[in-house]
Amino acid sequence: MTAIVETRALHKRYGRRPALTDCTLSVPAGSVVGLVGPNGAGKSTLLQLACGLLTPTSGTVEVFGAPPGQLARVGFVAQDTPLYPTFTVSDHLRMGARLNPRWDAALAERRVRQAGLDPAQKAGRLSGGQRAQLALALAVAKRPELLLLDEPVAALDPLARRAFLQGLMEFVAESEPQPTVVLSSHLLSDLERICDHLVVLADSRVRAEGGIDDLLATHFRLTTARRDADTLPAGMRVLHAEHTGRQSTFTVRAAAPVDDPSWVMEPLGLEDLVLHYMSDPSESAPADPRPVPEPQR
């Protein structure tokens, strides 16, 4: 698969504060990538580097094999979905039509209609969910091959969130060829639904990266009578260990679950998995692609 976004040793500093450190990533074509991490972890920075709103301090970022700037091919929905408050909904569509050569007016109008937006309504009077829907309509109607979304659903209620994600997934499914999407969010349950790849950022670094199915299939919680981590079978990489007087709980990465009467081994939910990589600074080993053999299917 060709990489749509590729970063190599990417660094970005604001003054002396590092926002992104040594980020090497590759986003495969047609994937939907979720960016997770605490606030200030570098998610927005990464997205803005990819769409050319920011330039790297060092390292490179390439989009479609070239430096960012191919505006017509990239859609971006910025955090808080900034729109012109005095513009009506249809003014925004008109702006999109005038500024984008590949503008798909029919798609834009359909999206606006589906979202139940009144074309004569001023953007300043839209609800958060409506704004997000309008921003999405604006971004997708330029028919981008890469769509970047910075916390698009952060401010939305569950209903508006679901509607937004439905719209987004409909766009992904109906476009030919299938566009690549990178979006950041705190809502792991959403990401689990709509993403096939996940990038975990913390403290400006990439902590984990991979296909969601692979991540879910290879991470387990192992509960057992108290024992040392190195007594576990080879092939299990212990990411985290916690001991009480009698019990040990391990977070492990393994190709497949191993049944043993002496322990309980359950799959780790995405939330626990991500929380682990977000919070444990000792486990900063990022995403080496082959730490564990692929699970058999």
């Binding site: 439905q166 987004l168 997934m169 409909e170 992904v172 109906e174 709509i194 096939d196």
Partner: peptide, 18 residues
């Protein structure tokens, strides 16, 4: 259809395909 599932369930079409 993949597209219908993706839009209705709000889920990645790749997941449906898989």
């Amino acid at each position: 259809k993949v597209k219908e599932v993706a839009a209705k369930v709000a889920i990645n079409p790749n997941t449906v395909l898989k």
